[in-house]
Design a protein around this nucleic acid. Structure first.
Lengths: 284, 284
DNA sequence: TCTAATTCATGTAATTTTATTTCATCATTA
DNA sequence: TAATGATGAAATAAAATTACATGAATTAGA
């Protein structure tokens, strides 16, 4: 039996050899492709003005195993058509939510692709090593990237990497003052222009703490000041035509670090499990 | 009934809430996607070492109409993936960082695609309206989703939607007690099984506050308890073979809400600009 | 701490639904 | 008028779902 048969293809090419009742069926299928997918033989027979037997025979005559097989192939076909029509548009409106969601998806995918393509395997490796060797890792951020830092701290601690983070800048700064060369600090900033974060980096440098920057802009003051750097992509500007950043890229960077660290850290799975158990009393 | 459900998405997201026999089925499906398409219930039951009844029940519990419906969706999914020619591999290692990054990318893209494909335009519209109409929006979370809630609160406030969130559960609870029907509360949870969040939802319901849940699992207690629901996909299980959630999907959901709200909210661009200016004294 | 009770996941078997095949009928053509 | 064969009704077969029973696990009570 042939595995993948194009339903439209077969119906069109064999159309002339069909009997009257079969043509009715073919017509209905061709013009209601996606509806057929959740119809039964009886329903299709009724809808096309034919009978169960004719529909069933028709499917076999067209080279399918049966009605079920035709439906599966039709589903594949519809999905494939949809899959190929990736059109990156920047329109978002409440009037066409379905299409808008597809547009957002395309943009987010582009964002992730760009972020990952900008990563230097060599530099990433250095960053991972730096994090693994560190006695304590500090994740710092201000404003709208604070949630990303908190998320990262949560993940790292889950892997057994002692990590601190916080919502108050002064507290973060105070902590940095106590760090040394055996630690590491990761600074997350969209633009890379934050004055306060620059001050913090200056303190870190004084104490010879290794520094890693995660920003949109490698040539920004923060990007330049830190020892190592990861660049995040954002396309929010395209979507809104305005000045405003996405956090998906930064969150993804944190997840990438997490995934790599989890495979290289010995016993990390034990740590995750222990952590899950420790917080699981909230469940059930 | 929901039309397009991502099979991998649902299976991964709800995996932890599956029973033993169901996990066997899910495992078999995830690792033999394309073979399932021409299998019967009995064959799958045999192959996965379970029974017909369990397979059938499993399909319904996952949100499908039945086994047939799951197969159709699986066929679509396989076809779509082939259409996009995405080859999803799950290997991550420090030895080949470049390839590992590509694998992570493929998985993250699949995660986003699934999350977005599971969104019902109609329900999303209701959610947006609910948020827009609300006097105050509360974003609540516990544990590792707190950063997502904080991020969302940041974004909403930027649009001129008064939003509260916090890191302390007791404080969040205290706030909920003061809310009413003219407000809205959004609950973010991975599994949807948090006891504390269920308590909070109960209070919200008592006060007739409209509730929206964002979880991996629409059939979880939280998913069921709330008025409206958004399902997030996670594939971390595939990457790590372990029990652990990704935050990229949840973050993306917040960004989607943000993008839609920003186009429909009048003057939202003014708000964003004003906010940017207000915090810009930190820059330069 | 042990036992009884209960809950609930799971498989077996019955039922229902769905698809296919057989067979009778009617139309068309030679 | 006979024969061929397309078609549909009905019977059969296949497949999926549901009802029910069983047994494991967990909880409550002693």
């Amino acid at each position: 039996m042939q595995e993948n048969i194009s339903v439209s293809g077969v119906l069109c090419s064999s159309y002339d050899s069909f009997f009257e009742a079969e043509k009715k069926i073919a017509d209905f299928i061709l013009s209601n492709k996606s509806d057929i997918i959740d119809m039964t033989v009886a329903e299709l027979a009724l809808a096309s003005g034919t009978s169960d037997a004719t529909v069933s025979r028709f499917c076999r005559r067209c080279g399918f195993n049966g009605f079920h097989h035709l439906k599966i192939n039709l589903a594949k076909e519809v999905a494939e058509e949809r899959g190929n029509s990736i059109e990156v548009s920047n329109d978002i409106s409440r009037d066409n939510i379905g299409q808008s969601l597809q547009n957002i998806l395309a943009n987010k995918v582009a964002e992730l692709t760009q972020t990952i393509s900008m990563m230097e395997p060599k530099e990433l490796d250095q960053i991972l090593t730096m994090i693994e060797k560190a006695r304590t890792v500090q994740l710092v951020a201000v404003g709208n990237t604070i949630p990303v830092a908190l998320d990262g701290a949560f993940k790292f601690n889950q892997l057994g990497i002692a990590t601190v983070s916080g919502t108050i800048w002064e507290t973060q700064m105070a902590y940095t003052c106590n760090m040394g060369p055996e630690d590491a600090v990761i600074i997350i900033s969209n633009s890379g222009f934050s004055k306060r974060l620059m001050t913090l980096v200056a303190v870190a440098k004084e104490n010879h703490v290794p520094t890693i920057a995660i920003t949109n802009n490698p040539s920004s003051p923060l990007g330049q000041a830190c020892d190592l750097h990861i660049t995040t992509a954002t396309r929010e500007k395209l979507l809104l035509g305005e000045f405003c950043f996405s956090r998906v890229s930064a969150t993804t960077v944190m997840e990438i670090l997490y995934l790599f660290l989890s495979v290289s850290k010995k016993n990390s799975h034990d740590h995750i499990r222990r952590h899950e158990i420790a917080i699981s009393d909230d469940k059930k």
